[in-house]
Nucleic acid binder design. Structure first.
Lengths: 248, 248
DNA sequence: AATTTAAATCAATCGAAACCAATTCAAACC
DNA sequence: GGTTTGAATTGGTTTCGATTGATTTAAATT
């Protein structure tokens, strides 16, 4: 089914006119929305700024709370504000800035599985480079972190040390560009913050299988065996993936 | 690895919700984190030095303790600080923070060889993902670019199309995070290329061996053969490397 | 009869303060 | 000199009240 474009526009236009005439409440909503837009513009609220609370605004704008909220609903739907319980209502960034904006945008697009595939693409290769280029200092640092990881007696500590271990491998690769790529990936990973869902309730016990996996990676790097380090890192990540998503 | 579909959908859904809720929060924290980084840098704290206590810092930086601690959480995860009850908060021994380092700074540190090692680490893996995930549209786009590359009659055009070809593979991987990593690497590559004047003078003739290499990569992706795509990309990059640096 | 308003209530978040546990350090003691 | 003890300090945790957006409910209005 294909419609003539102008026809559609015409129909919509007719509808709008009739609706606005016959249902004054719609017209009222439009007014409060434009009034809100004017308020935001006049207040010179910059993207990211917090607007006054709803209970405050109804006083200043002589509005009902429900009317105000309906107008906010429209603005939220069109993406010009975002709100959150306990924090407030904020004006959205009109144009995602290249620096952190693209990162935030990325976080929205990246699913946990996408993230894991990216890790599986990058980190084994980094481990391979680490096996080739790691300095003695870097290796001893890795060993130290690995020991600290095994000494962790709670999940939070373990997670922290695990992060440090992986980044230490990134450092061991002795390649600032690779490290930068790793950091970029890690920033996205941190932003995802899905751990609050998966792990806060189902918090797996501090299992010792991953200790062995870490050791295997470390052994590969110490032995200057790129393939072994690559394979060990891949195995480790697959294991992590299985722990998160459940075995297939 | 094959996943249960419902599981995946569930996870993705959870992720989306969380991300959309937490994104503004992340944005808010970024400010305090950068403020903390600035404080550490301005105070000229050397690796291993102890920072002022939290109760002291909240006075100087006009922060809440909880806000300060959240920012410290980020820095700790990043590995740039280390803290322990009763002792204090210390800046980590590995000071260089590439995470916040600017692109320009990175370009200065990256040599052509470092760059090529990074490409060899990342791009074959991306080609592998492309072989798995590329859509028909993406493949036909790749084919088109490849044909245009062969039609190039001067080096500038060839270079341009080569760039497009490699990025199109990044797109074909259907992984926004991997594509972002590729773009990051590519941004550095452009900077490094600019830096090394050598390349503009010693400009190898438009050779046709790399056409065959491109075709091989494309064939691997079309055949949905991840290993072949990976190997072909690796071979291609090694060939490029040899052309730039000379065979060993 | 249907919608809007007004108030109460819920749930998430933050900030302040109290409290906890690890560490340090110095005075007291043997 | 060596040990013990206890106060002070520090990062970590809990708790409580206030605030905010979200939701429900009953009265009011049209």
């Amino acid at each position: 089914m294909s419609h003539n474009n102008s026809n559609v526009v015409e129909l919509v236009d007719q509808y709008m006119t009739i609706a606005m005439l016959k249902m004054p409440e719609i017209r009222a909503h439009v007014d409060t929305v434009t009034a809100l837009r004017a308020f935001i513009k006049a207040g010179e609220y910059r993207p990211g700024d917090r607007l006054p609370s709803e209970r405050d605004l109804i006083g200043r704008l002589a509005l009902t709370r429900s009317a105000l909220r309906k107008a906010f609903d429209v603005l939220e739907r069109e993406g010009s504000i975002w709100r959150h319980v306990g924090k407030g209502t904020f004006v959205a960034s009109t144009e995602p800035q290249n620096g952190s904006g693209s990162l935030a945008e990325l976080i929205l697009q990246v699913t946990p599985i996408t993230l894991m595939r990216a890790r599986l693409s990058l980190e084994p290769a980094i481990a391979r480079e680490a096996a080739i280029n790691a300095s003695e200092d870097a290796i001893s640092s890795l060993t130290m972190i690995s020991q600290r990881t095994q000494a962790a007696d709670n999940w939070d500590d373990y997670e922290l040390f695990d992060d440090q271990f992986h980044r230490a491998i990134g450092i061991s690769a002795e390649n600032p560009l690779l490290l930068s790529l790793f950091d970029h990936l890690n920033a996205v990973r941190r932003g995802v913050a899905w751990k609050t869902v998966v792990r806060s309730s189902v918090r797996p016990a501090c299992d010792h299988t991953s200790f062995a996996e870490h050791d295997k990676i470390l052994a590969g790097i110490e032995a200057r065996d790129p393939s072994a380090a690559h394979a060990a890192m891949r195995t480790h990540l697959v294991s992590v993936s299985n722990r998160l998503f459940g075995d297939a």
